[in-house]
């Protein structure tokens, strides 16, 4: 395995009965690279993500995530990744600080470490006045930014972001992406799914999944040039509408 790659999948496959959800996909993700994982609903994105995060056992093929094998070291993978989705992010009935303490504790951080890190996050997000409020009472935009901070609280090698900006206002959405950039610069690799095609442009490299296969994988600029499109939205429509 390459020193600098944090995900390396080869002929990665998942079948449900006779249905092949993920069909022999191969790709690598480099350390610190913002990797966009696109695909239509039902193209197999979610299944592939579940296998990479150790929630689902593959049917065949190989993959190493954060340096660990998905077949035998799922528990080690889980210690070295962060995860955030639009649906579940934080406990609404705990305060901001309680959520941080909880997730820090789950990932085996010591109390002084947690305190130190929590102070940093609160400072960075400028949410000092919110720190003892229940998460339920925060505006959605704050919640999503906070959720991301908590997902990378334990400094994972990779953070999986499943539609992290759905329904978020345009200003917060951009602030969120700035946080993703900052994380990538600090050596955390963001692995992102999104339905916003402008966000696909922010990724260093983008893969497009169609019917279980990766149809294209390259930088946004190279993809636009190859398919002769003005933007990633057109690239996506072209690939997802006319598979093959």
């Amino acid at each position: 395995m390459d020193e600098q790659s944090v995900i390396e999948a080869r002929d990665f496959t998942k079948k449900f009965g006779s249905f092949t959800a993920v069909d022999s996909i191969s790709f690598t993700v480099a350390k610190g690279e913002i990797f966009g994982f696109l695909g239509a609903n039902g193209a197999g994105k979610t299944t592939a993500m579940k296998m990479l995060t150790g929630l689902l056992t593959p049917t065949s093929g190989q993959a190493r995530v954060a340096g660990f094998d998905v077949w035998h070291e799922a528990d080690k993978i889980k210690r070295n990744i962060g995860y955030m989705s639009q649906k579940f992010s934080l406990y609404n009935d705990l305060t901001v600080v309680e959520n941080m303490t909880l997730f820090g504790g789950i990932y085996g951080m010591s109390m002084p470490e947690i305190k130190d890190k929590a102070a940093q996050v609160i400072d960075k997000l400028a949410i000092k006045s919110f720190k003892d409020r229940l998460v339920a009472s925060l505006p959605l935009g704050f919640k999503q930014k906070l959720a991301f901070s908590v997902a990378i609280f334990h400094r994972p090698q990779i953070v999986f972001l499943d539609e992290p900006t759905g329904g978020v206002d345009p200003v917060t959405r951009r602030q969120f992406w700035e946080m993703i950039y900052a994380a990538a610069e600090n050596g955390i690799t963001p692995f992102v799914t999104t339905h916003y095609m402008d966000e696909a442009e922010y990724c260093h490299r983008v893969s497009v999944m169609v019917e279980g296969k990766i149809m294209a994988l390259d930088t946004p600029a190279a993809l636009k040039a190859r398919y002769d499109c003005k933007n990633m939205g057109e690239v996506f429509l072209k690939l997802a509408r006319n598979p093959g």
């Binding site: 239509a40 609903n41 539609e163 095609m197 429509l237």
Partner: peptide
């Protein structure tokens, strides 16, 4: 009410 939330770009179109 938000018929296209969480729907991919192709289906939205």
């Amino acid at each position: 009410d938000e018929p296209t939330t969480g729907v991919d770009a192709v289906s939205r179109k």
